[in-house]
């Protein structure tokens, strides 16, 4: 789909807004509808949109596999880390009241980081699954074209 001019222009117009909207949903989830899961999915959808129009190779250069692998684990670790931080500060696991002197601010802080962890893991898992599927499509195609295989 690389040569479709309309698609390229529209995609370039829309993708920044999709990504901004994802971030808005992520960080505004306390006040409006949304949260980490929705934000992560929207973020992944935006990047997948880019990959559909501009090709997998360019997307992989922008968002490399190793970064995604790190993010998959990093999100869960961030979530768990918030829980452990609560324990270290004298509360129970995932107890946000101790994260700040003011319990309400502590709750806010805990929810923020936990949602960030969810968003990171969800978006990277979605993207990684998409990469793997798209990669298999490329693989069979290249095997068809070059039976010896270059990989």
């Amino acid at each position: 789909m690389n040569r479709q001019l309309v698609l390229r222009v529209i995609a370039k117009l829309m993708i920044p807004f999709i990504l901004i909207f994802a971030l808005y949903v992520q960080f505004h989830g306390d006040f409006g509808p949304g949260g980490g899961f929705q934000a992560g999915v929207a973020l992944a959808a935006g990047v997948i949109f880019y990959a559909l129009i501009f090709g997998l190779a360019r997307t992989r250069r922008a968002v490399p596999d190793s970064l995604l692998d790190g993010m998959i684990a990093g999100g869960v670790l961030l979530y768990g880390g918030v829980g452990v931080a609560g324990m270290l500060l004298g509360g129970n696991f995932l107890d946000y009241f101790v994260l700040d002197a003011d319990t309400v601010i502590g709750q806010h802080r805990g929810i923020f980081w936990v949602e960030a962890g969810v968003g990171i893991t969800v978006s990277s898992v979605m993207l990684r699954i998409f990469y793997l599927f798209a990669d298999r499509a490329n693989l069979t195609e290249s095997e068809r074209d070059h039976p010896e295989g270059e990989r």
């Binding site: 509808p33 869960v76 979530y79 768990g80 995932l94 929810i111 893991t121």
Partner: peptide
């Protein structure tokens, strides 16, 4: 208690934090 106007977020991330942790682990 949480200072978060969106009750859905408050329940998901704070009151039901363990469930959401499990959920994230499932995605992982």
């Amino acid at each position: 208690e949480t200072g978060v106007p969106n009750v859905v977020t408050a329940v998901l991330a704070s009151y039901r934090g363990f469930d959401t942790f499990g959920e994230t682990t499932v995605v992982f």
